[in-house]
Design a protein around this nucleic acid. Structure first.
Lengths: 151, 151
DNA sequence: CACCAATAGTGGTATATGCCACTAAATGAA
DNA sequence: TTCATTTAGTGGCATATACCACTATTGGTG
């Protein structure tokens, strides 16, 4: 069997997803670079902002992200003074997160650039297609792969 | 706790893409774990396999990945003896990559698990929808965001 | 030939993410 | 109340990825 006959990685849903994520991530990062925030950081700040002093676990769940990964990602943002954490008074296991005033300003700044990137992407790909894509991606993020055997 | 009233990050194409990539990546990784390879590594081995001793730059281009990122990602695979590199005799700047016999065996093993993950995902999401999704993702990976140079 | 610009990779540094082992705090019995 | 269990985070380690500065080659030019 010749290698040339083998199907490319175009068939792998996961590989395609990652590849597109790299491409789009580079684009959004590029546009948002002047703010000093990566697109991921801007998204995280936004999530915290609209979350109402969310618990770390809540953020991680919303972003379908490992809790420890969230903790690591948060560190540069805390170091730079954009977010701060505090223990929930009713349950000291819970650590809540909020933006600092400085973080709020920075988020504002980054959001303006985000709009530019978002707009340009949708101009290029088409608004409808983008909406359909997001719907599909949302569905994937919500999937449950668990096999339904004994329980 | 439904904060779905606010314009969540569901609107950001990039955030949605990353989130779905995390989710799907975790699933594929999980299924492929018994092989000892991450899904990304399996994809990379596969790309090398079908590439015919590709140059590093060619791999990076195919995967829409930074060249230096590829170099770093390759290191564990070289360390574990799955791939090896050699200089192109006609152009010593170029470094070509190939699978070792051991790498080929490992790829075979991982591909069997990949099929399981791939199959299960498509069972859950629907084969048509998966195909359409891959097409959209392929399109994104091929986009050119450069502003028209107004020449 | 001598030089300079373009090309291909390397290494360092930083963020993004995941898993695992471990700690602390709350919970649910016994 | 006491103790096992569950829940929420932390820290360490490893891979994934990007950008930048730097090196080694190759090619084109005067």
């Amino acid at each position: 069997m010749s290698k040339d006959a083998l199907p490319g990685l175009t068939l792998c849903n996961n590989a395609m997803l990652r590849r597109a994520a790299r491409k789009l991530g580079q684009f959004y990062d590029d546009v948002q670079a002047p703010s000093g925030l990566k697109a991921t950081q801007q998204g995280l700040l936004y999530q915290i902002h609209i979350g109402g002093e969310p618990a770390m676990g809540a953020i991680a769940a919303a972003l379908v992200m490992d809790l420890s990964a969230l903790g690591h990602t948060l560190k540069p943002l805390i170091r730079d003074g954009y977010v701060e954490t505090f223990a929930d008074p009713d349950d000291r296991r819970i650590k809540r997160v909020r933006l600092t005033p400085r973080g709020l300003v920075k988020l504002d700044e980054a959001m303006k650039l985000w709009q530019v990137a978002q707009q340009r992407f949708e101009d290029v790909i088409g608004k409808d297609k983008a909406a359909r894509l997001r719907a599909a991606l949302d569905e994937i993020a919500a999937l449950d792969f668990d096999l339904p055997p004994a329980s």
